[in-house]
Amino acid sequence: MSDTALVVRERAGLRGALGAAGPLVALLALVLLGAAVNPAFLGPDNISNVLTRSAIVGIIAVGTTFVITAGGLDLSVGSMSALIAGLMILAMNTLLPFLGAGWTTVLLGMGAALLLGLLCGGLNGLLVVKGGVDAFIATLGTMGVFRSVLTWVANGGSISLDFGLRSVARPIYYGGVFGVSFPLLALLAVSVLGEVALRRMRFGRHVAAIGSNREVARYSAVRVDRVRVLTYVIQGVCVALATLIYVPRLGAATPATGLMWELEAIAAVVIGGTALNGGFGRVWGSVVGVLILGLIQNILNLSNLVSPYLNGAFQGAIIIIAVVLQQRRKPR
């Protein structure tokens, strides 16, 4: 009896260590591969470019970590981002004649984006938790609704930010302090907050408990419904934050804004070691996952080995492989 207990413990330890280090090892391997493929890869411009671009999906993936850890799923993040981008730009353009092309207008636009993210996330959460609609179906539905509404508002074309406002807002994406871009700083802040909330706060423990076994959480006097809705709200706010940083880069929202971001975000979370069925999550893993995806795209762009058009295929394959590995690792 004691022998078996010992084996179980050793296996758990080894598994834990491997599972923890896995994403980091993959990241390191990609960096080495990139350096081998193209000397420009390790140049400061390229690295900073990759990091800044990854930051947008990274911020979203932090929210996704909460949703998935609690046993949920949100397929609507890409569409939500498009809708928020469009309405945020509309709001700023509308305010422009009254407030002028200044920071007041931009800040109000950002506020509108955050509020919208809160509402969209809240809608998803209520549909899933109070409405009892399966998360996959509910967010598949809102995924269609969000993007379709944006397309309708944009009349099938694009919604462009006023040029005066563009130059004001430009530093939000392109600026930075001490050589670190604002998007990257935002990702850093969000992921530290997320990691602390998930690991060190009661809320995080409840999130993991609900994902592990919802009935146990309910019988343990955890406010299951409230916590589940909150994970979707967090996701919505993360999407809004990512979007309001992203909008100054493009200056416009189109029906293609944020396309396939849900795939990237979910892939990043799963690569990072969060259990797709919920119960265990780690925010830093998701951030590493986003970096892995970003590096793969970057290496495809820098090398002639494989067409960069196949980037989506790589992401799709990676998410499947990550899930297969997760299931293998499970006992029994």
């Binding site: 993991a208 009935e215 146990v216 019988y219 119960g279 265990f280």
Partner: peptide
């Protein structure tokens, strides 16, 4: 097992 303990924790 179903309602009392989180067996994986």
């Amino acid at each position: 097992k179903g309602k009392g303990l989180l067996l994986d924790k």
